[in-house]
């Protein structure tokens, strides 16, 4: 099977997966004990208003009609509108205005996790069974077991009171920022300002970056621990393989040995870990955004769920499912390139 057929098969197989997830979402929202109309209006909603909303959402249609409407609209990206959070606003607009902050957060979470986790893991793997290896390994294990939201709570406190606690003020470090706030990403929407108005624009960018670092560190924490562990074992396994021994025997310098023969091969098992991060990021962003009150998709989801904006929740759910399925395909594709030995008979 060629790579193209493999990818095609992969794409076709992802269709039932998407249909399944969306159907479950439909079932929970439309067949669950809480009717969307009652959820939108809350317990005090009067009967006429409920009827009106039921009319507009089509809740009185036969179930199969509701189902095909629901699925059809989502697949055609007719994502409906918000009812409670920002009544009457199309869901697309809401998502477009909330998404950039989540993407910014996710980007830095991945970068930090990779930037710290992999080097630490490789270092531990190159110096196995030393004190620093044990320290890093144990740290990684505990770090991974820590609940994200708790870590976030601690970090918020430590950073916002760093002046009193350590005599070092995080809030006024380099640029003045608050700890618990949404980063202002206006400058990224309009990158030309980095040249036309450098002073202001670069300060804003620095602020946005500095604000996102603590939540990104928390969000990336679990994956960082995992990357460290897998990185360590990957290096250990590579070091003991025959071709490294051969390279050593023919006199390859230690530097070339490490960079060319060990690291590149040790990266292979890390690929699924890095893409698997996406799942953790999607769930974790909900909590981290809540603690750091970042106005992102995760916070939007919690707000929508808590306030009974079920149509919006359904839409967000659908987008998350698409995202996860998409990332899975990207991961498999990356695999076929990095490690051609991977079988196509999935």
């Amino acid at each position: 099977m060629s790579r193209a057929t493999y990818m095609l098969k992969r794409l076709v197989l992802s269709i039932p997966v998407i249909i399944f997830g969306t159907t479950v979402t439909f079932a929970i929202i439309r067949l669950g004990p809480l009717s969307p109309a009652a959820a939108i209006l809350g317990p005090q909603g009067d009967a006429r208003a409920i009827q009106q909303i039921e009319q507009r959402l089509g809740l009185n249609d036969p179930l199969w009609e509701q189902y095909f409407d629901f699925m059809g609209n989502l697949f055609l990206f007719d994502l409906g509108q918000s009812w409670v959070i920002n009544s009457g606003t199309p869901a697309v607009d809401l998502i477009i205005s909330y998404a950039p902050r989540t993407i910014w957060l996710g980007f830095w979470a991945v970068v930090i996790a990779i930037g710290i986790g992999i080097p630490l893991g490789f270092y531990a793997g190159l110096n196995p069974n030393t004190f620093s290896d044990y320290f890093a390994s144990f740290g990684g294990i505990v770090w991974r077991a820590m609940p994200n939201f708790w870590l976030a709570v601690i970090l918020v406190t430590v950073l916002s009171q760093s002046e009193q606690l350590f005599g070092f003020s995080w809030t006024s470090f380099i640029v003045e920022t608050n700890v618990v706030t949404s980063p202002n990403l206006a400058v990224l929407r309009n990158p030309t300002r980095l040249i036309t108005d450098p002073g202001q624009a670069w300060t804003n960018l620095a602020k946005a970056t500095k604000q996102i670092l603590p939540p990104a560190l928390v969000l990336g924490s679990a994956s960082m621990g995992t990357e460290m562990r897998i990185g360590r074992t990957a290096v250990l396994e590579t070091i003991n393989s025959k071709y490294v021994e051969t390279a050593k025997a023919k006199g390859v310098s230690p530097r070339v040995l490490v960079w060319k023969h060990i690291f590149r091969n040790a990266l292979i098992p890390l690929v699924p870990v890095i893409t698997a991060e996406a799942f953790i990021l999607i769930g974790g962003s909900v909590l981290v955004e809540t603690v750091f009150s970042i106005n992102g998709i995760g916070l939007l989801f919690v707000k929508a769920a808590k306030q009974g904006d079920l149509p919006l929740v359904g839409t967000l759910m659908y987008l998350f499912i698409l995202l996860i399925v998409g990332l899975n395909i990207v991961q498999d594709f990356a695999y076929t390139i990095i490690d051609p030995r991977v079988g196509y008979d999935a």
Binding site: V17, G284, N328
Partner: peptide, 11 residues
Amino acid sequence: AMPALLLVILA
């Protein structure tokens, strides 16, 4: 492929 935590929140 379903976001687990979000599904639990919704349910």
